[in-house]
Design a binder for these strands. Sequence first.
DNA 1: TGAGTTATAGTCAGTTTGACAATAAGTGGC
DNA 2: GCCACTTATTGTCAAACTGACTATAACTCA
Lengths: 272, 272
Amino acid sequence: MDYANVAERREQPPALAVSTVIFALREDGNVGRKTLWLPLVRRTREPFKGRWALPGGPLGARQSLQDAAAANLLATTGLVPQYLEQLYAFGGLDRSPSRRVVSIVYWALVRGDGPAPGGAGPGGALREDPNVAWYRAEDPAVLADLAFDHRQIVEYALWRLRNKVEYGSIAHRLLGERFTLAQVREVYEAVLGRALDPANFRRQLRGTPDIEATDEFLQGGKHRPPRLYRYTGDTTPAATGPPLPQHPAQAAPPRQASHPEHHPALHETDTP
Amino acid sequence: MDYANVAERREQPPALAVSTVIFALREDGNVGRKTLWLPLVRRTREPFKGRWALPGGPLGARQSLQDAAAANLLATTGLVPQYLEQLYAFGGLDRSPSRRVVSIVYWALVRGDGPAPGGAGPGGALREDPNVAWYRAEDPAVLADLAFDHRQIVEYALWRLRNKVEYGSIAHRLLGERFTLAQVREVYEAVLGRALDPANFRRQLRGTPDIEATDEFLQGGKHRPPRLYRYTGDTTPAATGPPLPQHPAQAAPPRQASHPEHHPALHETDTP
DNA sequence: TGAGTTATAGTCAGTTTGACAATAAGTGGC
DNA sequence: GCCACTTATTGTCAAACTGACTATAACTCA
């Protein structure tokens, strides 16, 4: 299908795409502690040519939304997600200057300590795509330069991550199979952006049944060797259905009113 | 566009639709207390002809997702929502036996005490559509007969409502401008499905800054007249952006694993 | 007038949370 | 080998919160 101009395009049904916000934890060179990083892809055509954007693409005809997000993630990073959840469907009229696109966005957590700024990611050995690079997820300069409305999308994904991690069961997905409680605390501190009391944090984690002490200790450190723990709860990377949120706790930002107008009956259709 | 058969249809890009789960509070004839009701529309064609389904329709080319949901709601019930939030995008491959449809589903709260079973809704004076009827949202028999995957959708909407109401700021949207604390408690009890201690409930509500006592009392009751309160927080019916969940607290149900397969690069596209 | 019912306030023990002290167990410098 | 230093781990304590429960107030109806 070809359309002569933008006006005609606007009358066409909206296109459907799936994008993914992918988070990994990485030692930050500047800051002393670990921070959140995400892979971006450089746009090679208009609109926003040359700018960085979230990995994404059209929905395949025989692909579930989740599979599209996972395939998307694998193609960009070479990685399989440890966690994958639908974030939100963005469908504003002016998201793209060309044809209208409705994006169903997922957010994911991957392991791996290797993403380098502007370089290959955790699966770096596999790929050397100059149009894929990892950036600090909370870097305002990075966010400000994103294409489309991807800045808002990433900020919302960060918000969701913060509210999800508060309940638990998320941190271990950014870590490996075994981990120390201090590592879990590092994840929480990176995501929440504030320091946590080691003693109180330990008390809370010890209270959750899904984290189990092993009889091993992490050797090679400079100080007293910490005990290693294991996560015994659900480790499936992704839900096939709705996300069933768990324990957010934060204030809601302001909202705008919308003024729906009258519309002819919509319910005589073939649409689920 | 016409396609000769299902096989050809399956190769076409998925269609996009918007549906809405609309909740209202109503005095239940059978049970003594108020319960949740929702409007359904009868399907007048295949598939699922004659069955009840969620109100919904295709997304207009110049309509935001939220406006589509609100228009949808107005057309079905004659009402304007007191609350409207995106629920989830359902995109499974087998949701509809005919063409593949991705549904972006919203959930809404409306006021009104008048929906009658099988009859007109709260805006009943406006419409007498025999293909629209209100049913108890938690009635298993109703849920079991829904078209498509609408049963799962309604169950998820109920789950979300329960987790949202726990934080507060939702109950008043099902009530009027002024209300007694007992009425708020009725909402919570209807949504959560269990009785709450009046004294403790009062103590909690008194602690929230968004509920303010008026100097009026509800007269005409059979007993001591209760004080009327007013909600002073945000009363905008809907968010234009992401929902920013507030305070869920519940266990997550089991999940299935998904096995993403390799896929050619997806990031060289024009899709936001 | 008094029984019955709802509204509202207060009490009390158990739990959770944040702040913080105290001890254990390593490394590295001397 | 001994000591300073850092992290790991345990324990203490008060404030806040929660659920169960008691007590009192205020109104209607028989």
